[in-house]
Design a protein around this nucleic acid. Structure first.
Lengths: 202, 202
DNA sequence: CTATTTTGTAAGCGTTCACTTACGACCTGT
DNA sequence: ACAGGTCGTAAGTGAACGCTTACAAAATAG
């Protein structure tokens, strides 16, 4: 019998390094050589763990959502205790207003989008967006249900997309160094609030 | 005296072809050879018109705003006559709800963003975003001023960014083939309306 | 005409980079 | 022990591609 493979575990522990690398340089500009250097191993090892560069990138895309959700969950658990009357949606919004995009992982998404004629990359991005959207839409629905019973516009599904859009534009502003962190925070707070509440449909 | 150069005119007439090409394939994947083929000339000619590939890409970025604004202006001129009571902002919103992103030029922006450590590209993108933002913010201010005098939230500057974000997310959905054109239209109508009107600050 | 510049065409050059080959050392179950 | 796999390292390969060189043809002002 051969020696048992640690490939699975190694992939898991290298994923953050890979993701970080792609986030810094984008897809094309991050070379497999540099990737290997950052992982502290030879290029060949990398190609034994993943079939090709694209597969490494796919792993990075999945990591984007994984990281976000992990942070949100720890946040929600932590603030169940010292809750100031705000519900989960508002706490998440306040958190994002401060910390959105600070990991720079959105760069992976930008890279993926301009690489997106590749069907696998598309699939990974779709899955990522679908997950974010579902998470946010649920928060909005819960928030509105808790606070009052009326129907609002935009409906939660659309409001969730709008919030994702707001996050994206905040990423772009950060990326291009347009405006300040304070302004981005204002954006999250004002627009986020309006999207959460919505307007009563007459 | 030498023969007079037509370089300026040629650049102008090739710009849409270049832009279209970058929009279809992104920056890295669009080769200068293919670019030349589409322009119906040799690669060397291209390099006589622009110093390098990046310069061609910069021209494409500028073209994105140029095209949008041209369409908007013809729309506004045309609908001054058969105006159904809506103001400019609402007509633009209705127009975008139907036609946003159909030229695919947003792909140029995605490509630029993941290529964005290049200072020139960054500058071009900043200028483009700034122009879009100013245009939209003015529309919002005009709309609110015309309809009622109260202060609203989010303020026009932020609402304008939110609308750009909404447009971006619509582009992403179109790109990834998530949801239908009708849903994107709904997004523009509902979210756009709320951003235009805003909520009265008490 | 002629000098000077643009326009057209063909070939190629140098670099970057994803991915491979080759080979030896090292585990681990039977 | 040893077979059949994993791990580590070094070198290389082949293709893509941005950009250049070289040279001839055409056009225009003086």
């Amino acid at each position: 019998m051969p020696r048992p493979s640690l490939a699975h575990e190694r992939r898991a522990e290298l994923r953050p390094v890979i993701a970080r690398a792609f986030a810094e340089a984008g897809y094309r500009r991050m070379t497999t050589a540099e990737l290997a250097r950052r992982c502290g191993l030879q290029e060949t090892q990398l190609f034994r763990l993943w079939p090709d560069k694209r597969a490494m990138f796919l792993a990075a895309i999945d990591y984007v959502y994984a990281v976000a959700v992990e942070q949100w969950q720890t946040l929600l658990r932590a603030s169940e205790v010292d809750d100031g009357g705000d519900d989960a949606a508002q706490r998440l919004l306040a958190y994002e207003a401060k910390h959105h995009g600070e990991w720079g992982l959105y760069r992976i998404v930008f890279a993926g989008l301009s690489e997106s004629d590749d069907p696998e990359v598309r699939r990974a991005l779709r899955r990522m967006y679908a997950r974010f959207h579902r998470f946010i839409a649920r928060q909005i629905t819960a928030h509105r249900a808790a606070n009052e019973g009326a129907t609002h516009t935009p409906d939660p599904e659309l409001a969730a997309w709008a919030i994702i859009g707001m996050g994206t534009v905040a990423d772009v502003l950060r990326e291009l160094r347009v405006g300040s962190a304070a302004q981005r925070r204002e954006l999250f707070e004002q627009v986020g609030q309006v999207m959460l509440e919505g307007q009563r449909t007459r």
